[in-house]
């Protein structure tokens, strides 16, 4: 199971992982390897455990059973900062400290590269500048985070995890509170980062966005892994009917030819 996998993986994955909240398993016996260099998107109905799975991959939620592996070693045997130099997570509801500027917020992403006494490292400024540049926030570096628009603030959070300089970026529903234009702006940014060779795993709500931007789609239902693969193969009318309970046609997106869900009328 752990060996014999010839697909190039990042070394991050879960083995038979079960995670419960108050006795109810939210993730059940899931095994999954995060493919290297892909923009993987996890989809599934609400409560299917996709966010919880993402948190376990980031060493935020410890599984009740099973293992999260990073390069063959249990993720929980790493020290916190050590793991955070490999995997970065942007959760759904981060909170910006009162009065913090964009640059200082992004600087906090450097924490895993510091030690108890060395709270600064030579690479800090370069990493922060790169992250601000990449998210188009250079002009706003000295603005307070509270004054940003929703789209700008979300870019600032992405900049923070970029400054973390990890091989892997995990994003938990990064588009949720954004206007539609900003949703696409953020997804474009993810695609660009992916194009530059970064491995990204995102949890998304919108099936069409998932199909359009993912290079690898992971489908979950009721805590279990249903299927995974390229969107064109995975996203079928049967699957959407089965997993989401929605009768639909799948047509090629007129712009990108990626599969697009067109729901049937109920009448």
């Amino acid at each position: 199971m752990a060996e014999g996998n010839t697909v190039s993986t990042t070394g991050l994955g879960v083995r038979d992982v079960t995670i419960s909240y108050g006795g109810d398993p939210v993730v059940r016996d899931v095994s999954l390897d995060i493919p290297d260099g892909e923009l993987s998107v996890i989809i599934g109905p609400n409560g299917c455990g996709k966010s919880t799975l993402l948190k376990s991959l980031a060493r935020v939620r410890k599984p009740d059973r099973g293992q999260v592996l990073l390069n063959g070693r249990d993720l929980w045997s790493y020290r916190g900062r050590q793991a955070a130099r490999h995997v970065a997570l942007l959760p759904q509801n981060p909170s910006a400290p009162d009065g913090i500027t964009v640059r200082d917020l992004v600087r906090r992403g450097r924490y895993p590269h510091h030690t108890l006494l060395r709270q600064w490292s030579p690479g800090d400024d370069a990493a922060i500048d790169f992250a601000l540049e990449r998210t188009d926030l250079r002009e706003l570096a000295h603005v307070r985070a509270a004054e940003l628009s929703g789209g700008q603030r979300q870019r600032a959070w992405v900049a923070m995890v970029l400054a973390q300089q990890t091989d892997l970026l995990l994003l938990d529903e990064p588009t949720t509170f954004l206007d539609i234009a900003h949703q696409y702006e953020l997804l474009e940014l993810c695609r660009e980062l992916h194009g530059e060779g970064r491995t990204i795993v995102a949890v998304l709500h919108d099936l069409n966005q998932a199909a359009r931007f993912a290079s690898h789609l992971v489908v979950m239902r009721e805590g279990r892994l249903v299927t995974q693969g390229p969107p064109a193969e995975v996203l079928t009318a049967e699957l959407v009917g089965d997993v989401f309970g929605l009768a639909c046609d799948i047509v090629p997106d007129p712009r990108t030819a990626s599969p697009m869900v067109v729901p049937h009328d109920r009448r």
Binding site: K55, R59, V60, G80, V87, L90, P91, P97
Partner: peptide, 12 residues
């Protein structure tokens, strides 16, 4: 101050 999940993800 960044919230528990982000702090945990950063190894704090």
């Amino acid at each position: 101050e960044l919230g528990d999940e982000l702090a945990a993800g950063l190894g704090a």
